[in-house]
Computed example of a mutant assay.
Amino acid sequence: MAVVFPVIGHWYRRSNGTLFEVVAVDEQDSTIELQYFDGTIDEVDMEAWPALLIEQVRAPEDWSGSVDMTAEDFLDSEPGDLPLGWQDPLEILENSE
């Protein structure tokens, strides 16, 4: 397997199937900051990166892994209960003038 270089914003999968995104690369400290699909943050030394046996993958379509909410959290809400701008983010800007 070829060595894959860490790129901020790209998603990778370890050989055990764990998904993570590179969120920062600190060349001065020689570290790479990772955020796993479940939201956990980790840091890896640049020297250890090639030993991770990873492959670059597409970002997951289901982004809810790092969000601490389940489908049941939405069951009690009424359609009118959504916060201002939930459907249209620009509505907040229009109403603030």
Results as ranks from 00 to 15, higher is better:
Met1Val: 08
Ala2Gln: 08
Val3Arg: 10
Val4Glu: 07
Phe5Leu: 15
Phe5Trp: 06
Phe5Asp: 14
Phe5Ala: 15
Pro6Asp: 06
Pro6Val: 05
Pro6Glu: 02
Val7Phe: 06
Gly9Ile: 01
Gly9Met: 06
His10Val: 07
His10Asn: 14
His10Ile: 06
His10Cys: 15
Trp11Ala: 04
Arg13Asn: 13
Arg13Lys: 15
Arg14His: 06
Arg14Ala: 09
Arg14Cys: 08
Ser15Ile: 02
Ser15Ala: 09
Gly17Arg: 04
Leu19His: 06
Phe20Asp: 00
Phe20Trp: 01
Glu21Arg: 12
Glu21Asp: 09
Val23Phe: 02
Ala24Tyr: 04
Val25Ser: 08
Val25Gln: 12
Asp26Val: 05
Glu27Thr: 07
Glu27Pro: 07
Glu27Gln: 11
Gln28Val: 12
Asp29Ala: 15
Asp29Glu: 14
Ser30Val: 08
Ser30Met: 10
Ser30Gln: 12
Ile32Met: 03
Ile32Leu: 07
Ile32Gly: 00
Glu33Phe: 09
Leu34Gln: 02
Gln35His: 00
Tyr36Glu: 07
Phe37Gly: 04
Asp38Trp: 00
Asp38Leu: 03
Asp38Ala: 10
Gly39Asn: 03
Gly39Ile: 00
Gly39His: 00
Thr40Trp: 08
Thr40Gln: 14
Ile41Leu: 15
Ile41Cys: 11
Val44Trp: 02
Asp45Met: 12
Asp45Ser: 10
Glu47Ala: 13
Glu47Met: 10
Ala48Met: 14
Trp49Tyr: 00
Pro50Ala: 08
Pro50Val: 01
Ala51Ser: 13
Ala51Leu: 12
Leu52Val: 02
Leu52Tyr: 03
Leu53Gln: 10
Ile54Leu: 06
Ile54Gly: 02
Ile54Phe: 01
Ile54Trp: 00
Gln56Asp: 04
Gln56Glu: 11
Val57Trp: 01
Val57Ile: 08
Val57Ser: 06
Val57Cys: 05
Arg58Ser: 15
Arg58Cys: 11
Arg58Tyr: 06
Pro60Ile: 00
Pro60Leu: 02
Pro60Met: 03
Pro60Ala: 03
Glu61Gly: 09
Asp62Cys: 09
Trp63Phe: 14
Ser64Gln: 04
Ser64Ile: 06
Gly65Lys: 03
Ser66Leu: 05
Ser66Tyr: 04
Val67Tyr: 09
Val67His: 07
Asp68Val: 12
Met69Gln: 12
Met69Asp: 09
Thr70His: 10
Ala71Leu: 14
Ala71His: 07
Glu72Phe: 04
Glu72Asn: 11
Asp73Gln: 05
Asp73Tyr: 03
Leu75Ala: 15
Leu75Trp: 13
Leu75Tyr: 14
Asp76Tyr: 09
Asp76Leu: 13
Glu78Leu: 14
Glu78Arg: 14
Gly80Glu: 15
Gly80His: 15
Asp81Lys: 01
Asp81Pro: 00
Asp81Cys: 08
Pro83Lys: 10
Leu84Asp: 05
Gly85Met: 02
Gln87Arg: 15
Gln87Ile: 15
Asp88Ile: 04
Asp88Tyr: 05
Asp88Cys: 10
Leu90Ser: 09
Leu90Glu: 06
Glu91Phe: 11
Ile92Val: 13
Ile92Tyr: 08
Leu93Phe: 10
Glu94Pro: 01
Glu94His: 11
Asn95Gly: 14
Asn95Asp: 11
Asn95Glu: 15
Asn95Met: 14
Asn95Ala: 14
Ser96Cys: 08
Ser96Arg: 10
Glu97Asp: 09
Glu97Thr: 11
